[in-house]
Amino acid sequence: MPEVLSALFAMNPMKISQNIAISENGFLFNPATGDSFSTNACGKEIIRLLQEGQSQAQILEALQREFEVDQASLEKDLADFLYMLGNYRLLDANAQ
């Protein structure tokens, strides 16, 4: 299975590359690749939770406690965001 997909369908907690730095403004820099990104409040929160080592289920729960959103939308959006993280090589391939 391609790396991106395996990350996406993994039941295990996904690991975000630990050396990724994220600023107050939502500026994200990956020192391993030199790429930089911009993200919003919800994205920042997900990355923080990932860095804490939380599982997808835990992240879903945490976000639902924080934001006014239904579960279906949140699940869909989280999956899409994780896909983008994988796509941009921000997930740690060796973490699993």
Binding site: F29, S36, S38
Partner: peptide, 11 residues
């Protein structure tokens, strides 16, 4: 420094 690029990019 990367912070300058961050500033112009995000703000």
């Amino acid at each position: 420094p990367m912070e300058e690029f961050e500033k112009i990019s995000t703000l």
